[in-house]
Design a protein around this nucleic acid. Structure first.
Lengths: 247, 247
DNA sequence: GAGTGGTCTAGACCACGGT
DNA sequence: CCGTGGTCTAGACCACTCT
């Protein structure tokens, strides 16, 4: 039959809600302002709380809202841009990078990392834990996997752990000549420990940046950095000589 | 009181479920294999369907599962790596890039884009629609915003729309000398139209790549590309001369 | 039409932050 | 302690795909 279906698509309630809320956020709320609680909002829009939450979740995913248990829902500030090239393609831990070394352990890396390192499975590596802060807030955690072979000078110092040990590993690593790096960005969900450090709940959406550091024809180290997806925009200062400050 | 709380944290059911399912996926299922349906899985684990779905959602977010309405839930293949520098820092539409021009219109850009372009609000620009495919599947859509000033040669041809028009805009744009580019990656949710093109539901998680093309001291064009977050890993071939094929 | 995942409801209880 | 968001339940109905 020739029945033309125009706009048959029934828009889900939560989708429509999200749009309405989104517009309200722009016109009626200031950054940092607290929204009415979920039960009241749901009642006001005549939907179940679960439906309202679906809309709020989307807005939080987009970095528009900030929800904290026991506190409430607030309007989020614009995402902060964090540059992935703060050290100009240098080694991690080069002077002036944005990371703070927190800990170091020796352990067996995950299979995927071991594969990238080209190391035998089951072999331990140095794992340096670092945290990156911006505007006084933790925005990323990182695990840097360094095989013994990449830090030969460390063997004389003996085993150990802690931040001091981590800095020693980075120092040794910086002695190598960096042959280049490869990077990948993908979506992930925060592991329990990362979530804790980033002040988020486990499973929170994060941008996972995997960096492979090359030296001497092989992979000298692998970094897996976990950025808060709700508050971060990853930027790549790729200007080819043109100043970022122009315009 | 000196009561030490060891492991007091009650792990949410969906989080535990996710872990269990994740391990099952690795050991008992092959890529492409269909899982039991949600009602059966929920019954098997003794949880409500909503709780099970929370676990499945996480796994889908991580690219481990693929869910399609009317079909079922399957084990997803590993994410495909899509390089963000296929054209070696060239203009969009340079020969050999991975994009297919689909359409072109003249319209007022969103406020955020207009600001980046440094154009007056309310002024129309050319908007070229493109799609990127990899392994026979659409992985990204793009809107390329090009002010009239960046394609002076176009004015003689007259207005128009469609793919041919889009290619003409790109051709003119390629005449300019590229002064550099800036990029940012952030998490977003698919607009209805993008979702349709990417064969996803509206609101699906996407990686939004914003590129600013610089020329003549200003912004010549802005591209907003939307990549499927579930199936894509964005890679940056940043090897500093070392071949990617080594090792 | 049968079977799938997607949406929605109306409740309940829990964990956490501030008072 | 109260109020917040986070988890969970047991249902219902809808939209879609495939046969």
């Amino acid at each position: 039959m020739g029945t033309t279906r125009l706009e048959t698509a029934p828009e889900p309630k939560y989708w429509h809600l999200k749009t309405v809320l989104s517009e309200a956020l722009e016109s009626d709320f200031a950054v940092g302002e607290v929204l009415p609680n979920e039960r009241e909002l749901a009642a006001r829009f005549g939907v179940a709380r679960a439906t309202l939450r679906q809309a709020l979740e989307q807005l939080e995913l987009e970095g528009r809202l900030h929800r904290r248990r026991g506190v409430g829902t607030t309007v989020a500030p614009p995402r902060v841009g964090v540059d992935l090239d703060p050290a100009q393609h240098g080694w991690p831990g080069a002077s002036g990078d944005a990371w703070q070394t927190e800990d170091c352990e020796e352990a067996v890396p995950p299979a995927a990392v071991a594969r990238t390192l080209g190391a035998e499975a089951g072999r331990t590596v140095h794992i340096v834990h670092r945290v990156r802060t911006a505007h006084g807030q933790a925005v990323a955690t990182e695990l840097l996997y360094v095989p013994d072979a990449s830090v030969p000078g460390l063997s004389g110092i003996g085993a150990g752990a802690g931040a001091a040990r981590g800095r020693a590993v980075l120092r040794e690593l910086n002695r190598l000549e960096l042959g280049g790096q490869e990077r990948a960005v993908e979506l992930g969900s925060a592991r329990a420990e990362d979530a804790r450090r980033l002040d988020r709940l486990p499973g929170a959406p994060v941008l996972v940046v995997t960096t492979r550091y090359l030296a001497g024809g092989g992979t000298a180290a692998v970094a897996v950095a976990t950025y808060r997806a709700d508050t971060c925009r990853l930027t790549f200062g790729d200007t080819g000589g043109v100043s970022l400050l122009a315009s």
